[in-house]
C-alpha cells in the first residue's frame, strides 16, 4: 500500500513535505510573479507570502491533485494585492516606465516586452496557461472569473502576442 502522498503529508502539517512540494514549482512561481509584477524584489515578496499562505491554508485544499492550480491561485491573488499596493503608494509620475526587468529569468527581450505590453489581466491569463499549463477551466477558477470570459480574453491576448511577436510560424 502506498504511503501518504506529499500533499497529504503537507496537509496534516509536515513542513518538510510542503517544502518539497514548493521545490517542484519554485521556478514557475518566481517567473510568474516576476512577469506579473515586473519587478524582482516584489516578486520575491509575493512568492514568499504565497508560500506562507499556502502552508497555512493547506486545509482548504479540496482536491489533492489540484495543488498546483490552487498554489497559483494564491500567488495570483498575492501578486494582485502587492501590485495594487505598489501602484497606490507610488505617485503616477514617479513610476518607472518599465521596471528593470528581472535578469535572472533569461527570456528574450522581445518576448518580455510582448508580455509587458499586455494588460495585467491578460498577462495573468497567458502566464497561467503557459507557465503552469493550467487548463482554461482551472485558470478561470484561479483568477475567479468566468470560463467563457477567460476564453475570450485568452484568445485576445494570444492574438496580440502573435501580432507583437510577428509570425510565429517561422520560428517554430
Amino acid at each position: 500500500m502506498p504511503g501518504p502522498t506529499m500533499v497529504q503529508q503537507a496537509r496534516v502539517g509536515s513542513s518538510h513535505a510542503f517544502a518539497a512540494l514548493y521545490a517542484q514549482y519554485q521556478k514557475q512561481l518566481y517567473a510568474y510573479a516576476c512577469i506579473c509584477l515586473r519587478n524582482a524584489a516584489l516578486a520575491e515578496d509575493a512568492v514568499q507570502e504565497a508560500a506562507l499562505i499556502a502552508y497555512r491554508r493547506m486545509d482548504d485544499l479540496r482536491q489533492e491533485n489540484s495543488f498546483e492550480p490552487w498554489l497559483f491561485k494564491i500567488l495570483a491573488n498575492e501578486c494582485r494585492r502587492i501590485g495594487r499596493a505598489e501602484r497606490l503608494s507610488v505617485p503616477l509620475g514617479e513610476r518607472p516606465v518599465a521596471d528593470a526587468a528581472p535578469d535572472n529569468i533569461p527570456l528574450s527581450d522581445e518576448l518580455r516586452d510582448a508580455l509587458y505590453s499586455l494588460p495585467w489581466l491578460e498577462r495573468e491569463i497567458v502566464m497561467l496557461c503557459v507557465v503552469t499549463g493550467l487548463s482554461g477551466r482551472e485558470a478561470a477558477h484561479a483568477l475567479r472569473m468566468n470560463h467563457a470570459t477567460l476564453r475570450s480574453k485568452r484568445a485576445r491576448a494570444l492574438c496580440k502576442l502573435r501580432v507583437y511577436l510577428g509570425d510565429m510560424d517561422e520560428n517554430i
Binding site: 519554485q26 520575491e44 514568499q48 506562507l52
Partner: peptide, 21 residues
C-alpha cells in the same frame, strides 16, 4: 528554456521557505 536557466533568489530557496514555514 528560460526556466531551465532561471536563478532563484536565495530567499526563495526551499530551505528558506522551510524555515519560514
Amino acid at each position: 528554456d528560460a526556466l531551465e536557466n532561471t536563478t532563484i533568489p536565495a530567499t526563495l530557496a526551499p530551505d528558506e521557505i522551510l524555515a519560514n514555514v
